[in-house]
Computed example of a mutant assay.
Amino acid sequence: MDFVQSLDPSKLVLAETVLSFAVSPFAAPPYNLAIFLFGTYVQENTEAVHSLQTFTGLLGASTILDVVWMLNNDQNGFVKLLTVVILLLKIPTFLAFGISLRQRGTSFGGLGGADLSGPTVWSMPGGFTSSGREGYQTVDEERPSHTSRPPVPAPPLSNTHSAAPGAYQTA
């Protein structure tokens, strides 16, 4: 694991992005370039823990898809070599991003015993949640009865400016 911890995830993703771009015009897995472009964004964004989890999952799944894709498609020698290099680089990249997830205080997709009913990314407008937050009333909550005050009468308007009927008056 010391070897994986010494790897730089941003350099790995950059190398795989360049290799995926180089083989994209040929018979190569078309999803690799998109995954690695997403990985370059995720690596730079330090607050996007959920996106980092998504990228790590896509990276692991695409490793399996690469093997299936290479079995079903024919490639010429050089492109096949680059595709195998990309496939082999995905393994340490997956491990490096897994360690990066752990350093950011989370695990990969609930495999570490994470609570799946944790905080949500968004909340319903009007407070339609089970917690009834910040003064919003939930659907099941009873409304408190407020004592009604009589309306306060408006101050009398001075009639110093005469205006035409229907025109605005200044106070």
Results as ranks from 00 to 15, higher is better:
100 S>G: 05
100 S>K: 13
101 L>T: 04
101 L>Q: 00
102 R>F: 09
103 Q>L: 07
103 Q>H: 07
104 R>K: 15
104 R>C: 00
105 G>N: 05
105 G>F: 00
106 T>R: 00
107 S>K: 01
109 G>F: 12
109 G>Y: 12
110 G>Q: 06
110 G>Y: 07
111 L>D: 04
111 L>E: 05
111 L>G: 10
112 G>S: 14
113 G>W: 02
113 G>K: 00
114 A>V: 05
114 A>H: 05
114 A>L: 07
115 D>L: 10
115 D>P: 01
115 D>F: 04
116 L>K: 10
116 L>T: 11
116 L>P: 06
116 L>R: 06
116 L>H: 07
116 L>W: 08
117 S>Y: 14
117 S>H: 12
118 G>W: 03
118 G>C: 08
119 P>K: 14
119 P>Y: 09
121 V>T: 15
121 V>P: 03
122 W>H: 09
122 W>G: 06
122 W>E: 10
123 S>P: 00
123 S>Q: 15
124 M>F: 09
125 P>M: 09
125 P>K: 12
125 P>F: 11
126 G>A: 09
126 G>K: 06
126 G>R: 06
126 G>D: 08
127 G>V: 04
127 G>M: 02
127 G>S: 05
128 F>Y: 11
128 F>T: 11
129 T>E: 15
129 T>C: 08
129 T>P: 04
129 T>W: 02
